[in-house]
């Protein structure tokens, strides 16, 4: 029962946070210099001032900021994110909808890869603390972290795409003959294309998580109840995997909840390098072109995803550690 009230309270808190985010984004965005404009390498000599004023009016930019915000908010209530300022004037949700799945797919896969590799790595390093294994894996994961991601990606492209010709360089699937493939072949084709982006984006995340894992494991292993368990003569494996790991996984939950915006931010780089049509690229180009509705739409999506992630983290924490729940309840 108390867990339900806890979740309900958390949910209520999301609402002011969410509006805080939209107000701040809207203001920052409109205060930033520049105005909606297609990106061009050169000036277009035929673009007269009247035309640009005309465009401004068409976008409603001649209205005061609060009017624009109210209008945007009104749309949001009915799940209408407005239309893009770019010349195609497409509904924002259409633009996001067609790109979100790819970005989520890649981020989820790479997150999964990170967890699968770094949790066992962290545990093993903690158990064999200060052994050569610990040292070597430490250096290795940090090497992965320390290499600038776009540099690593390029080197991987050259090695696996050009020199070895094992993997395709960019894109989501083959261009030619794709439609003639069987479902199985299509999955394989996607998989081949996704290996590089997923792996390269995971490499940078290994260090963070495996280090957190190791240190929280070390801490847990030193707790009284573990000592007690050991003293009781329980098998070492059982001590580690039943008792210690469960508690050591706690900080992991928070880290995962926090990593959503970072991952989407990082998607900008991977998506442009590997030519993947995802949300990161959309967001970046909307910042550059000052396409306010698209940018706001993206921020809302990212904010919702992040808030959800945080909520899940909080719930997870509360479920796993009754002390936290009590503590928070006690305060309110």
């Amino acid at each position: 029962m108390e867990i339900i009230t806890f979740i309900a309270k958390k949910l209520l808190w999301l609402i002011p946070t969410f509006f805080g985010i939209t107000v701040i984004s809207f203001t920052v965005m409109h205060l930033a210099p520049g105005e909606p404009m297609a990106l061009q390498a050169n000036f277009n000599p035929k673009m007269t001032p009247e035309m640009r004023e005309r465009l401004r009016r068409a976008y409603g930019l001649d209205k005061p900021l609060y009017v624009q915000y109210a209008r945007w908010l009104k749309g949001l209530v009915t799940f209408d994110l407005g239309r893009s300022f770019s010349p195609d004037r497409r509904p924002v949700w259409d633009k996001i909808k067609e790109r979100l799945p790819v970005t989520l797919l890649i981020n989820c896969l790479s997150m999964l890869l990170i967890i699968v590799v770094s949790v066992p790595l962290g545990v093993a390093a903690a158990v064999r603390h200060n052994s050569p294994f610990d040292h070597i894996t430490t250096v290795l994961v940090y090497l992965g972290y320390a290499a600038p991601s776009f540099w690593l990606a390029l080197l991987a492209m050259i090695l696996f795409g050009i020199k070895l010709e094992w993997l395709p360089i960019s894109g989501l699937h083959s261009l030619m003959g794709y439609s003639a493939m069987s479902t199985m072949e299509k999955v394989m084709d996607w998989a081949r294309h996704l290996v590089l982006p997923v792996t390269v984006s995971a490499v940078g995340g290994l260090a963070g998580l495996s280090r957190y894992m190791k240190s929280s494991m070390l801490e847990v292993l030193r707790q009284d109840y573990i000592l007690t368990a050991r003293a009781k003569g329980l098998p070492e494996n059982r001590v580690i995997y039943r008792h210690a790991l469960r508690n050591a996984l706690l900080p992991l939950i928070t880290i995962l909840g926090l990593s959503v915006p970072g991952l989407i931010g990082g998607s900008v780089i991977f998506e442009s390098l590997f030519a993947i049509p995802g949300v990161g690229q959309l967001m970046w180009s909307s910042v550059m072109a000052r396409d306010y509705p698209v940018l706001m739409g993206n921020l809302v999506i990212v904010a919702v995803l992040t808030l959800l992630g945080n909520l899940l983290a909080d719930i997870g924490y509360a479920l796993a550690d009754p002390r936290v729940r009590k503590g928070i309840e006690g305060e309110q």
Partner: peptide, 13 residues
């Protein structure tokens, strides 16, 4: 709350 709001923005933006 401030931390939450800050964390919800992608840093790049």
């Amino acid at each position: 709350r401030l931390v939450d709001v800050m964390l919800c923005f992608p840093t790049i933006f």
